[in-house]
Structures are given as structure tokens and as C-alpha cells.
Amino acid sequence: MQNDNGIQVLVTKDPLDVRQACAAVADPANGGIDMFVGVVRDNHLGQSVTGITYDVHETLAAEELMKICREAQGIWPQAKYFAAHYQGYLDVGGISVLIAASAPHREEAFESCRYIIEEIKKRLPVWKKEHYIDGESAWLPGHSLVSAEEDDDDDDHAACCGRCGTHG
């Protein structure tokens, strides 16, 4: 767990805990908490999915989670943030990503939480291997970081393109 001035981030092989996320951002000055809970679904592109293995560059992922949350804090400075990603295998229904943002009002809570999940999908060094009911498995395509190697001045914060397969 990394902590930094209203931000907590976590990359873990332990089950993600919704209550922990909620408690991490609780603040008497903040009247709303928005959460995003990403879970493994049982289907993808017509195939029956039994689970997903999450391959993670642990140190870089923790750094990037913190960076994303700091960016959010720059936009919504009164909010508090918790962002965690799971590492390893999960059955269908398992929680893969967990975000909580508390803010004085609902608008900042919704917007900041949305910002964090969209950036996670585009930037976090995580790779998904889907496992299917017929015993086969496949790595999912994703978002290339090639533009990030030149500079971090990505041109927008548009929503995830949808190629990576788990748009909860």
C-alpha cells in the first residue's frame, strides 16, 4: 500500500475489499463516495469465460496508480482517492479493480472516479489472459504505450477504446 496526502493505492494478490476502499476515502468534509468495482464477467466476444489471469508489473503499476490519482487530485483537489488492482488469477465474479473517490459533492466524486478508471484502462501495466470453458486461453489486446515513451503529453483523456475486453 502506498499513501500520499489523501491518496492510497494498492497492487495486491489478496482479495480486494470494498469496505477497505470506502473506509480509505471516508472524510467528514466529503458528502459523497463514488466507487467503481471491476469484476470478471463470464463472457467475451461470444466465448464462455471461466476466469482471468492478471499479469502485472507490480512496481510500475503502483507508481502509475499513484500518478493517475495525483492527476485527479490536481483536477478535484478536495477529493480523496483509493485505487487498487488485483494481481493473479480470478474466477468469474472476482474483483479485479477497485476505485473509491470521496468528495464534498457527488459531481466531483463521479467525475474523479470515472477519470481514474479510464486512465487505468489506457495506462496501467496490466495484462489479461482470459481462460475459456473449453480449456483454451488467450491474452487480450490492449492499448499500446508507445506514445507514452516519447512523452506523457497524451492528447486527451478520452474513454477507453473498448478493445481490451472488460468494460464493466
Binding site: G38, H57, L60, A61, H85, S96, V97, I117, I120, K121, K122, R123, L124, P125, V126, W127, K128, L140, P141, G142, H143, S144, L145, C160, R163, C164, G165, T166, H167, G168
Partner: peptide, 10 residues
């Protein structure tokens, strides 16, 4: 070092 293919977190 590490080589990072296209990512798909979440």
C-alpha cells in the same frame, strides 16, 4: 529492464 506490450488493466 522490462518490455511492456499493449496494456489492458481494469
Amino acid at each position: 529492464l522490462s518490455v511492456l506490450p499493449p496494456v489492458c488493466g481494469g
